[in-house]
Design a protein around this nucleic acid. Structure first.
Lengths: 237, 237
DNA sequence: TCGTAGTTACGTACCGCGTACGTAGTGCGC
DNA sequence: GCGCACTACGTACGCGGTACGTAACTACGA
């Protein structure tokens, strides 16, 4: 009957400073930066409330004055690195501009390998996310399709980039905690898959591997993928 | 100096029964089924080693005879529901067949809302995953492009479907643990975004919302997306 | 045939996690 | 200048993954 109201909390909807009481010792930016520093250096799993508090030099529970849940800390992190996106004046060639966006996103994720894991649709409303989408829309001004379609383009391009780079980085991020190296893990997996393919149960898969046994050029694949996504939206004038 | 070897462990590479010692009380299928049951009913976060062991009726640590890490349990889950994919004799129309694959995947994810979260590239080697990819390749037999390109098509389609359905389900899965409803959360977010848009800082975003204020038909969007992905690979003969 | 080695089963224990709660201190607004 | 809303943070709870030790059990080599 008593208890608390249990109203939905969206961190961006609450102003950072309320006026009353002692001035907070840290800003949201400070906290986000500390968390990002830890995640970059030690992986996302090292980002705990205690660890971030220690990094800041304050008590663990003090963090809860700034964020209601750990998840909000993640939102702060995503927004913070989203601010690293360089926004330029679109040049009129929407295809070139969107390619540049995609490459920038990929670079961002390489700088912060934990980012793909935190890329969630529900985080799409942070200040820097809004800015980013607005910038994409500006790049798409010359594209003669509805806003709805433009949004779909942006969503799809981001999804594909996130998935692609997530794949690129997954093993690396994963094996960070494990007692063996990425190469060892890959070797064991390759040996296992090789054995399965040799069983003859997957003829096409085997043929695919045979066709191109060497390591794939990931840059090339990425480029091709982007091209295909954009093709799907090109009215072809 | 002593310690253990610390060799990479891939669960699929080790046979289920070794012959020596008492016969195991459960099969991998039993364990996977128990975990899936819990995840379906109570969400992925309810799937803990203790909880799964309780569901099976055995001691917690007994599970570690079957899986080396909790992550392996996740692999078992993904593989188990992957077995629900219905594989048919491809009919010669690769486009229709791949659309059917995509719709089936989406249905699978709706049945198991935790699946998108576990869809990781490193899980791509389980028996049922291999079967699934082989089946997709069979569907693509009529498509006159290299195996490499076919693999890229499969990867991209799966990525897009996973992202799309993940978005669809994210809030639902997320708010399961929270003390307020999905509708309340959405309302608060919408109010916040409305306020930001009213600030005038994001004119194109605002225009986009104005253009289509009603709720979007997600089915339609899904269909359009699939079409675009496939278009990108259609040589057009 | 019979050890014995490789397994299974599982209780106990450790450490780290997110976070509820209570208390003390602080400074703006009335 | 009083009071209240806020900050700071120590303590504690319950739960998580899992290392480790022990006891029972069974297929295999001698």
């Amino acid at each position: 009957m008593a208890g608390r109201a249990a109203e939905p909390e969206v961190i961006w909807a609450r102003r950072e400073r309320t006026g009353r009481g002692p001035r907070p010792a840290y800003t949201r930016a400070d906290i986000a930066a500390a968390a990002v520093r830890i995640a970059d250096a030690e992986g996302l799993d090292a980002v705990s409330m205690r660890r971030v508090a220690a990094e800041l030099g304050c008590g663990t529970m003090s963090l809860y004055n700034y964020v209601a849940r750990k998840e909000d800390l993640h939102e702060l992190m995503v927004d913070a690195v989203g601010g690293e996106h360089e926004l330029w004046e679109p040049g009129g060639d929407w295809r070139a501009d969107m390619l540049r966006v995609a490459h920038q996103t990929r670079a961002l994720m390489h700088r912060h390998p934990w980012l793909p894991r935190l890329m969630s649709p529900v985080y799409g409303f942070s200040p820097n996310s809004l800015r980013f989408v607005e910038h994409c829309l500006a790049c798409l001004d010359p594209l003669p399709v509805s806003y709805g379609t433009r949004m779909e383009l942006i969503a799809m391009l981001n999804a594909v980039v996130t998935m692609y780079v997530g794949n690129e980085l997954a093993t690396a991020e994963r094996t960070r905690a494990l007692p063996w190296s990425e190469e060892q893990e890959n070797a064991v997996r390759a040996a296992y898959v090789g054995g399965r393919l040799a069983s003859g149960a997957y003829p096409r898969l085997a043929a695919g591997i045979t066709e191109n046994p060497g390591p794939v050029d990931m840059e090339e694949v990425f480029e091709r993928m982007l091209g295909r996504v954009l093709d799907g939206f090109d009215p072809g004038d």
